[in-house]
């Protein structure tokens, strides 16, 4: 007659056996990954020598605290303003046509060169000169550009 059994005798491993099992599996992993492990060790040495490892360690240990401080700092109004400004500016820049910007930057450089020349000549500009130069196609184009630019800015401010 087979009596029902409800107890299981576990093969409890001794501490020694557990240790040797762990070591065995570790060794086989090491053998399989020799190259990458060696490289990692070198990297770790570098990090240790430079003190970075120590700093990282402390940071990770205190990660919750650090994150709380960081997030706390970031929710302060000046910071959120800064983030919002940066994002807004970033957003505005992304809408510009890079080709146009390139052209504009080129034109500004040329303008500065001309202006330099004008400065050196040190000639006085009268009201008639102003009217006269309006007919100059280059100057007319620049003024037209400026006026339209002002109009656009004005529209933007209205929203």
């Amino acid at each position: 007659m087979a009596k029902p059994i409800s107890t299981i005798k576990k093969n409890e491993l001794t501490e020694e056996q557990k240790k040797s099992q762990s070591l065995e599996s570790l060794l086989s992993e090491v053998a399989q990954n020799k190259d990458s492990l060696l490289e990692t060790l070198q990297l770790l040495q570098e990090l240790h020598d430079s003190g970075i490892l120590d700093a990282l360690n402390s940071l990770v240990k205190a990660k919750e605290k650090v994150a709380k401080i960081a997030v706390g700092q970031m929710t302060r109004e000046p910071v959120t303003n800064l983030i919002n400004n940066t994002m807004a500016a970033g957003g505005a820049l992304t809408t510009l046509d890079p080709e146009m910007t390139k052209k504009l930057m080129g034109s500004v450089a040329l303008g500065i060169e001309k202006a330099q020349q004008g400065l050196q000549e040190d000639s006085k500009v009268g009201i008639l000169d102003l009217l006269k130069v309006l007919n100059d196609p280059d100057i007319n184009r620049a003024i037209g550009f400026g006026l339209n630019l002002l109009k656009g800015v004005g529209e933007g401010l209205k929203e």
């Binding site: 919750e64 994150a67 709380k68 997030v71 706390g72 970031m74 929710t75 959120t80 983030i83 919002n84 994002m87 957003g91």
Partner: peptide, 22 residues
């Protein structure tokens, strides 16, 4: 993440008001 960190993080996202696509 624990609540006392999660809530400020959500608050931060709200305060920063990024556009939703971000």
């Amino acid at each position: 993440i624990e609540d006392d960190l999660l809530t400020p993080m959500i608050d931060l996202v709200k305060a920063v008001e990024p556009d939703y696509q971000t």
